[in-house]
Computed example of a mutant assay.
Amino acid sequence: MATLQYFPAVKPSAIALGTVFNHVASLGILTPVFGDTYHRAQAANSKEEFFKSKEAASAAAAWSSSLLGSGVQCYGVGALINATGTLSYKGAAYLGSLIFFASSAPSFISQVVTERRPLDTIAVGAVARVFETVGLSLFLTWWGTRTNPFD
């Protein structure tokens, strides 16, 4: 059985604030889902009818999975910042860029080359992912991630 001692320590306030930061950045991608849901809610005859609808369920699932994913990603970036000993904004920007290129760049290349999606759609996703990686690492460096800064 794995114990928590094997996981790098990250300041809980950094995880909480980073999760909010990251979740707000990812909501830019989910805005069309919530916009559709908002219009369905206005068209519904009652609150009960809306809450039983498929749109409400999908919006709740998207929101909660995005929030959970934001928290896990925030912990991972904070742990990387601590493990690499990153103290400067320049180092945080490099680390965030590496995370971006490792996790998001392949899908953007695929969207351009094979799927031939519109460039404006790809650009919105890319900007959101840059905020979620580079912006998050800069934010966490600013806030601080170490539980004991003298370690």
Rank of each mutant, 00 (worst) to 15 (best):
residue 1 M to K: 15
residue 1 M to D: 15
residue 1 M to F: 11
residue 4 L to D: 15
residue 5 Q to H: 15
residue 5 Q to L: 06
residue 6 Y to V: 15
residue 8 P to I: 07
residue 9 A to I: 11
residue 11 K to M: 11
residue 11 K to S: 12
residue 11 K to D: 04
residue 12 P to E: 06
residue 12 P to G: 13
residue 14 A to W: 05
residue 15 I to R: 02
residue 15 I to A: 02
residue 15 I to D: 00
residue 16 A to H: 12
residue 16 A to N: 07
residue 18 G to K: 00
residue 20 V to C: 03
residue 21 F to V: 04
residue 22 N to A: 07
residue 24 V to N: 04
residue 24 V to C: 06
residue 25 A to D: 00
residue 26 S to E: 05
residue 26 S to W: 00
residue 26 S to M: 10
residue 27 L to M: 09
residue 30 L to K: 04
residue 31 T to H: 09
residue 32 P to S: 07
residue 33 V to S: 04
residue 33 V to P: 02
residue 33 V to E: 04
residue 34 F to H: 02
residue 35 G to N: 10
residue 35 G to C: 13
residue 36 D to P: 08
residue 36 D to A: 10
residue 36 D to Q: 06
residue 38 Y to F: 08
residue 39 H to K: 13
residue 41 A to N: 03
residue 43 A to E: 13
residue 43 A to M: 11
residue 43 A to S: 13
residue 44 A to R: 04
residue 44 A to D: 10
residue 45 N to C: 15
residue 47 K to N: 09
residue 47 K to A: 13
residue 47 K to C: 09
residue 51 F to T: 02
residue 52 K to G: 13
residue 52 K to V: 15
residue 53 S to P: 04
residue 54 K to L: 14
residue 56 A to Q: 10
residue 56 A to N: 09
residue 56 A to D: 09
residue 58 S to R: 10
residue 59 A to W: 01
residue 60 A to E: 12
residue 60 A to L: 12
residue 64 S to Q: 07
residue 64 S to H: 05
residue 65 S to I: 14
residue 66 S to Y: 01
residue 67 L to M: 06
residue 67 L to I: 05
residue 68 L to D: 02
residue 69 G to M: 03
residue 70 S to R: 01
residue 70 S to K: 08
residue 74 C to L: 06
residue 74 C to R: 07
residue 74 C to I: 02
residue 74 C to P: 06
residue 75 Y to P: 02
residue 75 Y to I: 04
residue 78 G to V: 02
residue 78 G to C: 03
residue 80 L to N: 03
residue 80 L to Q: 05
residue 85 G to A: 11
residue 86 T to W: 00
residue 86 T to I: 09
residue 86 T to S: 07
residue 87 L to N: 12
residue 88 S to R: 12
residue 88 S to V: 10
residue 90 K to M: 10
residue 91 G to W: 05
residue 92 A to G: 00
residue 94 Y to W: 08
residue 100 F to A: 01
residue 102 A to S: 15
residue 102 A to E: 13
residue 103 S to I: 14
residue 104 S to E: 15
residue 106 P to N: 09
residue 108 F to C: 06
residue 109 I to F: 08
residue 109 I to V: 10
residue 109 I to T: 12
residue 110 S to V: 10
residue 110 S to N: 13
residue 111 Q to E: 10
residue 112 V to P: 04
residue 113 V to I: 14
residue 113 V to A: 08
residue 114 T to L: 12
residue 114 T to D: 15
residue 114 T to Q: 14
residue 115 E to V: 07
residue 116 R to I: 11
residue 119 L to I: 15
residue 119 L to C: 07
residue 120 D to Y: 11
residue 121 T to D: 11
residue 122 I to L: 03
residue 122 I to A: 08
residue 122 I to Q: 04
residue 123 A to S: 08
residue 124 V to N: 07
residue 124 V to Y: 02
residue 125 G to C: 03
residue 126 A to H: 04
residue 127 V to Q: 09
residue 128 A to S: 09
residue 128 A to K: 06
residue 130 V to M: 01
residue 130 V to L: 06
residue 132 E to Y: 00
residue 132 E to F: 00
residue 133 T to G: 09
residue 135 G to F: 00
residue 135 G to E: 00
residue 136 L to E: 00
residue 136 L to T: 01
residue 137 S to A: 03
residue 139 F to H: 02
residue 140 L to M: 14
residue 142 W to E: 05
residue 142 W to L: 03
residue 143 W to L: 14
residue 144 G to F: 08
residue 144 G to W: 14
residue 145 T to L: 11
residue 146 R to H: 14
residue 147 T to H: 04
residue 148 N to H: 10
residue 148 N to M: 06
residue 149 P to F: 13
residue 151 D to R: 11
residue 151 D to I: 14
